[in-house]
């Protein structure tokens, strides 16, 4: 029992890194996605094309490859420019998740009926007032389910940074597995991921309930 508690404690220490990566990614990739979605739904063709390029490249290549590219590849293009491992991971995740959020938000904005824009217009509201008061608030409700999906995927994706040797939940478990030839640390890791994701599910359920006062 004591052995389990000791292992769990060690693995939990990795949880700080996991949570830090998770939080930083969400905090920065959502606004990034929001801004890019605005650009993508704008009327400026070059901007739309640039965003199209961004989302296709990022969503079309593996996150793992992107991690390698940012950490090992960037210094080759820019000699002397080497990100510290954790920063490289955060940067990669923000760029990656930003692309997915761009598409989610774009879809959400475009799913709002034309009549909402027309009603705002005949009431004398300009583009900014229409977007901030009428369109975006309705978009939030519609994008909550896919955003919850992304958040859950993100928790699991944090395990990928193990390839850069960052000491998060999975790496710490692996260390004990390798040292003691036992499989129990993996189970502990799985439980930790499950708990994290279940809390997320509960949180998003609460949010969705809050938005369910209207259709």
């Amino acid at each position: 029992m004591e052995y389990i508690i000791d292992s769990a404690w060690y693995i939990l220490q990795g949880c700080t890194t996991t949570l830090k990566l998770f939080a930083m990614t969400l905090v920065f990739s959502m606004p990034l996605g929001f801004i890019c979605a605005m650009a993508k739904t704008s009327k400026l063709a070059p901007l739309k094309m640039l965003m199209g390029f961004y989302t296709s490249v990022v969503r079309g290549t593996p996150l793992l490859l992107q991690l390698f590219f940012i950490y090992y590849g960037l210094p080759i293009f820019f000699p002397g420019f080497r990100l510290e491992r954790f920063s490289a991971a955060v940067l990669t995740f923000i760029i990656n998740y930003g692309a997915y959020f761009t598409e989610i938000f774009r879809g959400g904005i475009q799913s709002i009926e034309k009549g909402q824009y027309e009603a705002s217009k005949v009431l004398g509201m300009n583009y900014r007032q229409t977007m901030s008061r009428i369109i975006f608030p309705q978009t939030i409700k519609r994008v909550l389910p896919p955003v919850a999906n992304e958040a859950i995927t993100l928790v699991k994706d944090t395990a990928l940074v193990v390839v850069l040797g960052i000491g998060e939940v999975l790496r710490n478990s692996k260390e004990i597995v390798a040292r003691d030839f036992t499989i129990s640390p993996f189970i502990i890791a799985a439980v930790i991921y499950l708990i994290l994701n279940y809390s997320l599910v509960l949180m998003f359920r609460k949010l969705e309930n809050r938005y369910s006062v209207y259709e």
């Binding site: 300009n126 008061r133 209207y214």
Partner: peptide, 25 residues
């Protein structure tokens, strides 16, 4: 203007629907 399909703002109450524009502008 009043539309065939109302085009009320679904995320606002009846009162908020009415108050929205005069406050916004």
């Amino acid at each position: 203007m009043v539309f065939q399909n109302f085009n009320l703002f679904p995320h606002k109450t009846a009162l908020e629907n009415i108050c929205e524009a005069p406050v916004a502008i």
